[in-house]
Design a protein around this nucleic acid. Structure first.
Lengths: 228, 228
DNA sequence: GTCTATACCTGGATAGAC
DNA sequence: GTCTATCCAGGTATAGAC
């Protein structure tokens, strides 16, 4: 699970000076330790939340001394913000297929499948996001009100267009998104409950495929989508 | 939002002695402060999680000095457990209507509406539960594997019976429950996201009614339930 | 039973050697 | 650039007066 974006690194003006006027884009990952730190931080923040996570635990997970965390990321809050930024870029993706002239069954089905895949491959990212949400979204409130709202507004127009053409029931697209997001992310966020009810110690690939197929069917049929 | 069950009170053997052999059931709420403490604790644990919550904040919310919390509940963990116990009793309710000989449309529709009402009236309970889940359910794992699993197993048999009678599509009832739980609780747990996308500062009663109606329609139609 | 004052400890952050 | 040792704030829990 490699991490690729480091938007909130601690500023190192000395190094910037040393590079003179060299283009910013020339900057690259200075040390693999940074990636390890972000990966370890995601796991710890996912399980313990911001308050419950300790820098010592993250340092252990990354295999570096505690002080190095404060060298790369000045504060615990900065490190948390960097982890959040990574998860948000993940969340915005996958909606490309939902357009006015797309086939609803294909577009919605593919979107749900993609969301479920994301939940399976990045469960910790889902949990970090959920934690932030539960605590009132102090860090990402602006993101939700701007980028996310704009994206949903645009996609909602496409779905309303489908409805005008009789390709889907006249539903509220926003609440449909809430339902899809919740139903997919629950397999990461509420994993202990899912495992307990199913009587299993982990959610198997086959089980998740069954869940995905059922959810796709439920949504398409429930919205009156004509299967092309 | 009165709190009614106090299963994990700190033990006061002195008082028990004073009561001699008096029946346990004769015990009653010794002080309204205890109810205030539990109510305040639920709110604080919901917003901050277990680690993020502080005893000082809870004491402030309840209007009592910090030390009194440790008098009624020996530790922070005991207080948290007491809050959790209250929420779990809430969660188990509302499934009474789902029986083999019930009408699927009525039973499922009523259940979804009841769950959504619960989300609206007890959002903090939902958030405390979600927090515990996200952190791996260390306190309530046993409850999930026993009481909850037994309940879902029983209700699943009823739904499978409906399917044999052709009253509903042959779906997996467990995943249907996961979807319903997630789709309803998201309006409490992910409230900041819902508000941001809708462009509102709070979720109005009317908005939640729309969401409820749409979800009931989605589920009933999506499962091929015949409307009686 | 109730509250004030305090002891003790965890954990974030930093100074300074290498 | 990297790490060891340390400082200090904040928070749980308790002792002891009333």
């Amino acid at each position: 699970m490699p991490v690729t974006a480091f938007s909130v690194l601690a500023e190192t003006t000395e190094e910037a000076d040393a590079e003179r006027e060299a283009p910013r884009r020339k900057e690259h990952i200075r040390n693999a330790a940074v990636a390890d730190i972000l990966a370890a931080a995601e796991a710890v923040f996912a399980r313990a939340g911001f308050a419950g996570a300790t820098m010592a635990e993250i340092a252990d997970g990354a295999g570096v001394p505690k002080a190095n965390l404060h060298y790369y990321f000045r504060t615990k809050a900065s490190l948390y913000q960097a982890v959040l930024d990574n998860t948000l870029t993940l969340w915005l993706s996958e909606t490309d297929g939902i357009t006015m002239d797309a086939d609803p069954a294909t577009a919605l089905g593919d979107y749900i499948r993609a969301k479920m895949r994301l939940t399976a491959t990045h469960p910790d990212a889902s949990r970090v996001f959920a934690n932030e949400m539960l605590h009132g979204a102090p860090q990402i409130g602006d993101y939700l009100r701007n980028e996310l709202k704009a994206l949903v507004d645009e996609k909602s127009k496409a779905i309303e267009h489908w409805a005008k053409q009789g390709k889907i029931d006249p539903i509220d697209p926003r609440h449909l998104f809430f339902t899809i997001w919740a139903a997919t992310q629950t397999y990461a966020d509420f994993q202990p409950q899912v495992c307990a009810v199913l009587g299993k110690s982990k959610i198997s690939r086959a089980e998740l495929d069954r869940a995905t197929d059922q959810l796709v069917t439920l949504v398409l049929k429930g919205c009156g989508v004509k299967i092309a």
